[in-house]
Design a protein around this nucleic acid. Structure first.
Lengths: 237, 237
DNA sequence: TCAACAGATTGGCCTAGGCCAATTCGCGAT
DNA sequence: ATCGCGAATTGGCCTAGGCCAATCTGTTGA
């Protein structure tokens, strides 16, 4: 009779069931505890946790040890359109900010030179930051810039925009950017920095920034939360 | 003493351990069975399975019920660069092909019209396909094109390229494309069509194709396997 | 020689429950 | 009232093992 969906695993049916229950619920409102759900749906906590885990990965739910599981606040989805994080956020009426994890000078690694086509600069500046939207972590990125940029931290703490700072204080203008977008699974460090869970899907973006002459002047590795983020591109043939 | 990584979950340590073992292994070679690994590492099968599941999601391993778990063949990573799937594959020396799931005429839905800025065409043509690289499924996509395109199936079965067919037989030339890229988790249908696992990370891409006058002439929803695929974009300010 | 069948093997899914850590709540002392 | 402490609650992680389905393997019989 019913051969439409006979083989769907139990955790998946539960997941979709929960998704339906949550759809009309107030963001931030709690859902029943795992033990309660296991009892209500006559299943084991393991199965409930598997269903919840995928909904968390999709950004539908969020959970905290000791507190409970909640309907995820519908965080604004940040869309990457232009080349500057700060400009993009402003264009979407989002408050952007950054937490600087470190600024340091590094010597040009062979892999950096070859993989990213940087000119043979013996010294590079590395800027590692967490990018926040409305106070919530969205991305973790490390930018490499050729040369020794003195006083960069001070300038960055001022307005936050790397591109604006580079243009105003160092005469570096990024005219063109090449982005490569791929998926990634969150490890412990990513989970911590982005306040997400291990195993959550992330977007890994490598960017090469070029100036007006086509010379590479930036290479950045960014990791974005898979929920809360979309990448936009316009291509002409 | 050792406060470097005291709190890393067991399944994660096992995952990285396995990743190391597999790094130098021949693609396609089998790894020990889940039960054997559980015994060797003095853990439970549940924990082993969690470690393997993430490695499968990353494309490092692949497994089949009844057969075993294997080092994933290092599938070529398809990179989306231009606007045409067929052209991109050719540029990367990959054999591309398509499996047509259905071609049908649909009446313009309000959501289609509003969300994608299609002109008010009462009739649309919907083309649903699975795109393959070297015979392996890479993407599942559904394209909507304005108007009733007679004989489309025949032309598509000929060369496979939708854009080439539209240009040659229907006078439709896509000059510009707008892509939105986001993550997604594989459900049962996606897993089946793309020969991947439920819960595996996917890339969901919505494309709006415009002709030389800027009129929308295509809207496509594509789901790509998260391993095996990268998206490339070049942006000028 | 080869086909068919029976058992063993392997991953897919699930159960039942334990211990720990983070958080919350209530009660008692100040 | 308020602070502090301990118990209860909740998610995080793990164990041990069961049943099923898909696959493989060896044996048996035509």
């Amino acid at each position: 009779m019913d051969n439409s969906a006979p083989a769907a695993p139990k955790y998946y049916r539960l997941k979709e069931e929960l998704r339906g229950l949550v759809r009309d619920a107030e963001p931030g409102s709690p859902i029943p505890t795992e033990r309660a759900l296991a009892s209500r749906y006559e299943t084991s906590r393991t199965t409930v946790r598997q269903a919840i885990a995928e909904l968390v990965a999709e950004g539908v739910l969020s959970r905290t040890q000791g507190k409970g599981t909640f309907v995820a606040p519908s965080s604004p989805t940040y869309v990457r359109q232009l080349t500057s994080f700060t400009d993009d956020a402003a264009a979407q009426d989002l408050r952007s900010s950054s937490r600087i994890l470190g600024i340091e000078h590094v010597t040009a690694d062979a892999s950096l030179v070859s993989r990213f086509g940087m000119p043979m600069a013996s010294e590079l500046t590395r800027v590692e930051r967490v990018r926040l939207i409305n106070g919530e972590p969205l991305a973790h990125e490390a930018a490499y810039l050729p040369g020794v940029l003195d006083g960069l931290r001070g300038h960055l703490e001022g307005n936050g925009s790397l591109y604006a700072t580079l243009s105003a204080h160092y005469g570096i203008d990024i005219a063109e950017a090449e982005d490569t977008v791929e998926t990634m699974v969150a490890g412990p460090e990513d989970a911590l920095l982005l306040k997400t869970e291990m195993g959550a899907p992330l977007l890994l973006i490598h960017r090469r920034g070029l100036d007006a002459e086509g010379t590479p002047v930036e290479w950045t590795r960014s990791v974005f939360r898979g929920d809360r983020f979309r990448f936009f591109a316009r291509t002409r043939r």
